[in-house]
Design a binder for these strands. Sequence first.
DNA 1: CGGTATCCACAGTGATACTG
DNA 2: CAGTATCACTGTGGATACCG
Lengths: 146, 146
Amino acid sequence: MGATGVRKARTSVRANVRRVPGPCAHWDDQDADFIREVLDLVGDKWSVLIIGTLADGPTRYSDLADAIPGISQRMLTLTLKQLRRTGLVDRTAYPEVPPRVEYSLTDLGTSLLSIVLALAAWSADRHAEIRRHQAAFDAATAPAGS
Amino acid sequence: MGATGVRKARTSVRANVRRVPGPCAHWDDQDADFIREVLDLVGDKWSVLIIGTLADGPTRYSDLADAIPGISQRMLTLTLKQLRRTGLVDRTAYPEVPPRVEYSLTDLGTSLLSIVLALAAWSADRHAEIRRHQAAFDAATAPAGS
DNA sequence: CGGTATCCACAGTGATACTG
DNA sequence: CAGTATCACTGTGGATACCG
């Protein structure tokens, strides 16, 4: 991997006592924006599903639609375009008739996939614990009323 | 870490040729739902910022509001509640006057933080590359018109 | 101080129909 | 087959005002 690590405190000597408008020790405002961008990209309803599907190899438009039940043509097209714009997926159109178009993960997309996989592992691992917390919280919060 | 790894192909022997309604090799529909839940949680506008700020240690409500410029009281309260419900943050109210309330990351929250940090590192690392792709894509897409 | 309640605007998404 | 166009709906989030 290349130069990893969130850029550290670029702003001179951050005093030992944090002055308020400094967001947190892990990233500065600038980094926070990058994270938000990636989160906006990946946090939408379909991106991760598409990336996961493409991880199996190049896939045709209609196969993607089949592999991801519930997605509309509109959202499939829109999300793919978004993903392409970010450089996460590639599009290859074969000038045949009937037309055939294949989408595939770029290296960038593959590198993101590994993080998504880590998140997936975390989700699966902690899912039960989360459910318990939710149940406990809901029980403690809404015990009023019938 | 406990039993990590996204649960693998529970559905008998998945034929070597993927039959369409199987989403992808990395997770099944069920896992996909878990991921979506976590993504919904973390993909919203403020959760990650709050988690990052709380990573520095227990923080008061008003300090959070100061540390995260632009957040409204409504969203701060709402997001904290959501985070609490999921078991990612703890709330401690001190029965003083004036009232004092501190929020802190739970172990669960801390474990998620490490993944978020990985994502942050990825963002910072690939940011320039992404920007290039976006610029190239936009140039190739909208060259028509003036 | 640490919230809650109400109203409103808008971006994201789905359904449907049409096109190259 | 692989999209695009249009419309309508809904959830998310901002502004503001009020409460314990």
